[in-house]
């Protein structure tokens, strides 16, 4: 599986990553090798095997829909790089 520059740009967009120019060539090479390696799965006879998403293979247990930890707004916004009035701050998105 060949990874070209367009593929890499699309992946970086989806993953919200920016790449330095110098990182592109080795990354393309590594991804190509890794995808070539995992391509070995194509030869596996999986028949009508159901996909296994989780070792328990059952529905997740649900909790009661009730507040358990109370208001932690101040504690949590204190961790943020930028916050004000109990809200996280981000660059302006609406003019």
């Amino acid at each position: 599986m060949a990874i070209n520059d367009d593929d890499l740009d699309k992946l970086c967009f989806l993953a919200r990553l920016a790449l330095n120019e110098g990182d592109r060539a080795p990354l393309k090479s590594d991804l190509q090798r890794m995808l070539g390696f995992v391509d070995s799965l194509r030869d596996a006879d999986v028949g009508d095997c159901a996909p296994m998403a989780h070792p328990h293979d059952s529905d997740l247990r649900r909790r009661v829909d009730a507040v358990s930890s109370g208001d932690q707004c101040d504690q949590l916004t204190a961790l943020a790089p930028a916050a004000s009035a109990g809200m996280f701050l981000v660059p302006k998105v609406i003019e």
Partner: peptide, 25 residues
């Protein structure tokens, strides 16, 4: 990036879903 590739449209079945089937095997 590798995980994003495996989950992206057009590759999900060929990579991620197939890997999950192999996981069951």
């Amino acid at each position: 990036l590798l995980g994003t590739y495996a989950l992206s449209a057009g590759y999900y079945d060929a990579y991620y879903l197939r890997a999950q089937k192999v996981r069951r095997l």
